[in-house]
Design a protein around this nucleic acid. Structure first.
Lengths: 121, 121
DNA sequence: CTGCATCCTTGCCGATACTG
DNA sequence: CAGTATCGGCAAGGATGCAG
């Protein structure tokens, strides 16, 4: 699949598209949390730690418009909004899983080596 | 593994680290090509198409310093440089594979749906 | 509680020119 | 053929304030 178009944008391979859809700093962490539980906006905000209000809203909107998550609004005062992962969103989980594994392995390997050259000091 | 440090930078999860190491626009496409073949600089440049000279060199340097690829220089005129994937680099391949699969599935699904609401016009 | 708009900073990436 | 350096655009990400 060498070069194709989607959503008015050109991609050279499926990986580029995937990174557009679930890449970035927070999309995977969000999906990861939604994968087996429903979360409210405020819960996500608190649990993701450093994320700003703006970023969270932005990322949730993109995930929603790409069909990876679903948003349910309760017409109450004060407002209550819940986020669910969709079937399509579930398809992204394995990719996140293998990325996590690689990141973990990389970290472990890189931290296991530092002490091999200390014979003379 | 909630929040850790690596290479003087803070990460909230392994995914962030993974994306730093093999994310970006070209690192995965490069690794993907090196996975079962040795490539020369010029070959990569030609095959990757739109990538600029600067970007290719930059990405290759980062992959090398992270230990994912190895660089072999032949002291000849004109210069000849070959790039190999390392064992550590091989560990990134499954992650790229699942991302490719997701990107592909996403594309197929999104392009299969557009015609479901045409019963009345 | 949740959402939207604005402004600003940062860093990725591209274009171009020069070297051995 | 391969590498290095500089300049600058542009989009992602962050801070803050106002609104329903």
């Amino acid at each position: 699949m060498p070069k194709f178009e989607f959503g008015g944008k050109e991609y050279n391979n499926p990986v580029e598209l995937a990174l557009d859809v679930i890449g970035g700093k927070y999309k995977m962490p969000i999906l990861w949390r939604l994968k087996d539980k429903v979360w409210r906006y405020g819960e996500l905000k608190k649990d993701l730690g450093k994320i700003t209000h703006k970023m969270l809203t932005e990322q949730l909107r993109e995930l929603e418009s790409d069909g990876l998550i679903h948003r349910k609004v309760y017409p109450e005062i004060p407002p209550k909004v819940e986020y669910f992962i969709t079937e399509l969103g579930q398809k992204a989980i394995p990719a996140i899983e293998t990325l996590r594994k690689f990141g973990h392995d990389f970290y472990v390997i890189k931290n296991a080596q530092p002490k091999i050259e200390n014979k003379d000091d």
